[in-house]
Design a protein around this nucleic acid. Structure first.
Lengths: 171, 171
DNA sequence: CGCTACTTTCAGAAACTTGTGAAGTTAAGG
DNA sequence: CCTTAACTTCACAAGTTTCTGAAAGTAGCG
């Protein structure tokens, strides 16, 4: 793949680890603040900051100074959320984890599942408190809002794909 | 408005506390799942399920079976997030907390502050890793995505206001 | 078919969060 | 001004989460 000491190697391995780490920890902190667990956040940020967009379990463990177990847990979570995909390097038992540059933010917007559950809870609320009560009406309106958002987000993502293609070409 | 004992009154005072509580806890659980703290979630859900859209500190404590301290903390958080507003009942030292039926979901969409911080972190990343590196390009694209989303969300909320007015009249 | 390089699972220690009671603060009303 | 209702702050206990090391599982390759 690559030889020790060549430029690509420097970029991948060296690349001012200081700066990389600073970004990784800073961005991860923002994700944590937004409600994501710490370790998945750090792993995700590390992948985002990697040149190839993919790292092995060992590389992640080393870079973040955590155990293989922690990497394993974080990666399981991220792939359940469709924020990374896993691939096996052919002819090795090493696994690589990858951010697909378009896949991941679609996943982030994909609060769709979350919205659906909110909608369902609200709908129950309207029924059990009564559609003709003030509280019921408030909840019905809220429900309508989320339904509206659902549709709008789908349309927005469609527009983004077009916008993106114009600006960046297909990733 | 209404007489004691009539149906609406029953709805406001009694209102099958069982059903209310079930909704409150269920909806709060969904909010928790989405990353919000437990107590703010419960307080918020309780307000949402109240007929008047507002409750006092004491009412919240009683309904949720928690201490005044817990209510105080939750309410501080919610008002920082602009998800509830506080008002003082004139001629009393009681405070009321209120969901404004349109205000609150605007606040929920108002991940704007969150997005801005992500954008700022990404922008730092592009700079420190180099706009001409693969990682830098990936981050620049991500940044572009968030900027796109910012604008789109503003437009979406504008459309919602129109849609809502048509369907519900001004709240 | 077994060795070995990797990954996953699991029990438990450490760190963090969360809610409480109690003391402290503020301001309404006499 | 003093009293007192109401809210807030704080130190701490209880509960949860998170990460680790160790053991178990899996699959390439000889």
């Amino acid at each position: 793949m690559r030889q020790p000491g060549d430029q690509a190697d420097q970029a991948a391995a060296g690349r001012d680890p200081e700066a990389v780490s600073k970004f990784v920890e800073g961005f991860a902190a923002q994700l944590v603040e937004a409600g994501m667990q710490r370790m998945p956040s750090r792993v995700f940020a590390a992948l985002l900051a990697s040149d190839s967009g993919s790292l092995t379990s060992a590389e992640l463990g080393e870079q973040l100074r955590v155990s293989p177990a922690a990497v394993s847990g974080a990666v399981r979570y991220l792939s359940q959320q469709h924020m990374v995909s896993r691939e096996r390097e052919p002819g090795s038992r090493r696994e690589r984890y990858r951010v697909h540059s378009n896949q991941w933010y679609e996943a982030l917007t994909n609060r769709e599942a979350v919205l659906k559950r909110w909608e369902s809870a609200l709908s129950d609320g309207v029924t059990s408190l009564g559609a003709d009560t003030p509280a019921g009406r408030r909840m019905a309106e809220t429900l309508a809002f989320f339904e509206f958002v659902d549709e709008e987000i789908a349309a927005m993502m469609e527009r983004w794909r077009v916008h993106r293609e114009e600006r960046f070409g297909q990733g």
